[in-house]
Each structure stands twice: as structure tokens, then as C-alpha cells.
Amino acid sequence: MAAVTLIETRALSRHFGGIRAVDGVNFALPEGELRALIGPNGAGKTTFVSLLCGRIAPSGGQVCFLGQDVTTLPAHRRIGMGMAYTFQITSVFGNLTVQENIALAVQRRRAGNGRALESETRAALAQVGLTDRAEQPARALSYGHQRLLEIAMGLGQRPRLLILDEPTQGLSDGEVAAFIALMREVARQTTILLIEHNMDVVMTLAERITVMDAGRIIAEGPPDEIRADARVQEAYLGKQHAEG
């Protein structure tokens, strides 16, 4: 593959007390890819991406972004370099309007440019289809719309790398379909790392899939290969079948 590696980790670890939430993970994501990160609950996916974007500090190992070691950089500096992170648990500014929420995401790059701020905010609003609700306070939105706002705040940052933590959780079937279409469009300009439980979404969207279990990467490859992988079936799909 000729693509440049956008983000890379070496032996990245995070321990909580005696629990190894993330355990020596080596991971690389080439620029332009749409990668899904899957694994059973408690596999360490959210901890792993939190380490990537600097929400929590690692116990050991390295994170490199755009060829630069960012392990010791605080979260806001990494975001400034072009990462964006959308929260698993919806975390919007409830008392501000939808438009103000997105403007806050845009304005970091466009602080001195009112016109660009306005047009990019409007563009992000339109991308997720919330234009009609721009003046509503975010807390008045339905859950599904809040998830979309969360994504729009990610898009408004025009990131090099967009990390989405379970974006379709709690969405209706129609909203999921719209999300898939949106991701296809966004993926043309942006590298995406997607934590997702909905296998249909994963199999439809992802170019490659990384599977985590118990803090380690146990498999990585294109969707077909992952579907056929025995370890993955045992660790993840098997458990789900057992649960269901």
C-alpha cells in the first residue's frame, strides 16, 4: 500500500489498577481508509481511542500522528493537529442552540473569519440534515438528532482523522441508513476510525476491520476475512450468538 500512515501506536498500554484495559497494542491506520474497530463489551475499544486522542494518558507505549510522536501532547493539541472525537455518550452543549454547538466546533480554525465560520457551520448542519433545527437548544433534540449533532460537531472540525465512538447506538433504521450514506460521503476526504456494534454498518462501510478482545488486537483484515476468522467468531460473534 502506498498510502501514508496517518496514526500509529507502538506497544500502547493502559492499566487501571490490575486490569489491563489496553495491553501492548500495535496499530496503524493509513490515510484515507475507513476502518472499523470492533470487539465485545469491555474489550478496551473506548479506552484505546481515548489514548489515541489524549483523553487519558497511557501507562506505556507510543502514539504517532502525522509522523510525529504525540504521546505526551495534551488532548487539545492533538485535536488541533487534526483529530476529532465524538463521544460514545452524547455530550453536546445542551443549553446552547444546535447552530452554536457546531459553530464552536468550527470556530477553532475559523476564529478570525466570520464568513467562513458561518458557511462551514451551515455546511455541517446541512450534511447531517439539521438545518431546520439550527435555532433549537440542543437539549430539546431527540436522542437520534443529538447523535447527529455530535457527528456534525466532528465534521465541523474538518479533521484529518475522525474517531466515532458507537455513533449509531440508539438510532432508528432510517437514521442508520442516512448515517451510512453520510459516512460514504465523508470518507472521501477524511480518514475514519469507527467503533461500532452494528455489524451491518460495519460490514457495509469498513474497508478493513480491527478486532479487539481483552485489551489486545486479535485480528485485522478486510470484512470477508474477519467474518471467516475463527478467533473472531469465538471471541466476538460467538459470544453475541451465545447471548442472543
Partner: peptide, 24 residues
């Protein structure tokens, strides 16, 4: 001013503001 908007954002949700790339 943008700086003031960020202050309000911090009041509303500091962690979110930080994860939008602002040095809170």
C-alpha cells in the same frame, strides 16, 4: 467574541470543549 463563546462552552461542558481542541 470567539474567546467568550469558548468560556460559555467551558461552563456548559468542559470536557467536551477540551475535546473540540480548546485549551480550556
Amino acid at each position: 467574541h470567539p474567546v467568550g463563546r469558548v468560556l460559555i462552552a467551558i461552563r456548559e461542558n468542559e470536557e467536551r470543549t477540551r475535546m473540540l481542541g480548546y485549551d480550556t
